[in-house]
Design a binder for these strands. Structure first.
Length: 316
DNA sequence: CGGAGTAAAAGGCACTT
DNA sequence: AAGTGACTTTTACTCCG
């Protein structure tokens, strides 16, 4: 290990909490400090700062020796491995760590240890349950392009659901989907129920019930998804310009101030705003194109679009 | 074809018996 | 735990340019 590996960390000041400017967006950039460990541009979705909570060791090493003394060993706990990656496997071979055979007296002891390990660990339904759920979460989150922190949060939620005995009587797939859905909402990177239904084995109504049940039982407060968080994704599907995107976001923000959006489906609002913005910016997109991208019907789009248009007296 | 609108059916939510 | 009512969304259809 070289001397250069010891980094001096700057102390954390209040500056970190402040709003930053996103390098890839122009004006009116909103940046939020999302619950996990990232600062993500609310406008374009760019990750400005990663792992902001990992500020390195809380101590400072003044020389190599001190560093070695103070470092704590072991790999980090991995939330997505069913036993948090802390398990020790007992090998089936009757050899010790140096490859020598083990004496007959010790063999019976080892045998008992294996048996014990099997009955307490491998055979526990709970762990199978978690392994299955975590691999489902892994699969779906990569198919949906969700960031790793969302995956980890959903694993945490699922583990908690298991601990509180909420899974019994429900399918593992459904509850895993529900946990991921909740995590994606909590981390402000929502995907619509339809998008989840596409990658899940469950149908929409099935895990929809699961997620409500889960959110209620775990006392998770899930504020309604912000339409702004859908804009970036829908617009890139539609291949519209950044101007349309920012315009749509500002329309949504204004509409929210006017209380036009309460009780309405967020994806419908996003669709209406994008459609109107594309018209205002002279990049006509058809209603059916936008509606398709947002996963709502044209009628819903028209309703939102009309409301926003009339509220601000915009002619398009 | 794209846009606008409507009526009726369906679905979800808060609240009550 | 089923029922109710206000509300949003969808379905299906019509009309216009």
């Amino acid at each position: 290990m070289s001397e250069s590996k010891i980094k001096e960390r700057t102390p954390i000041t209040g500056e970190d909490k402040k709003e930053l400017e996103c390098p890839s967006c122009e004006e009116s950039v909103q940046i939020r400090d999302y619950s996990e460990n990232k600062v993500i541009c609310n406008n374009c979705g760019r990750v400005i700062k990663d792992k902001i909570k990992d500020r390195g060791p809380e101590w400072r090493a003044y020389d190599q020796k001190e560093k070695e003394n103070r470092s704590r060993g072991g790999p980090p706990m991995k939330e997505t491995i069913h036993d948090r990656g802390l398990s020790t496997q007992i090998d089936w071979k009757n050899k010790d760590s140096k490859g020598k055979s083990i004496s007959p007296e010790k063999r019976s002891k080892i045998y008992r240890m294996r048996k014990w390990q099997k009955s307490t660990k491998m055979n526990e339904q709970k762990d199978r349950n978690l392994s299955l759920a975590f691999s489902e979460i892994q699969r779906m989150s990569s198919q949906l392009g969700l960031p790793n922190n969302v995956r980890d949060v959903s694993s945490k939620i699922y583990r908690k659901a298991v601990d509180e005995d909420l899974i019994r009587g429900h399918s593992i797939e459904g509850m895993a989907t529900a946990a991921l859905y909740i995590a994606s909402r909590k981390n402000q990177v929502p995907r619509t129920l339809e998008e989840f239904a596409e990658v899940s084995y469950m149908d929409k109504n099935e895990f929809c019930k699961n997620y409500r049940y889960m959110a209620r039982e775990l006392d998770l407060d899930l504020p309604p998804a912000d339409p702004v968080n859908y804009v970036a994704r829908f617009s890139s599907d539609l291949d519209v310009s950044g101007e349309v995107k920012t315009r749509a976001i500002s329309l949504i923000n204004k509409a929210q101030e006017e209380r036009l959006t309460v009780g309405k489906g967020p994806s419908g609002i996003a669709a209406g705003a994008i459609y109107l913005a594309s018209k205002l910016e002279g990049e006509g997109r058809t209603q059916s194109e936008v509606a398709e991208a947002a996963g709502v019907t044209e009628v819903t789009l028209r309703n939102r679009y009309k409301e926003i248009k009339e509220a601000f007296d915009l002619d398009a």
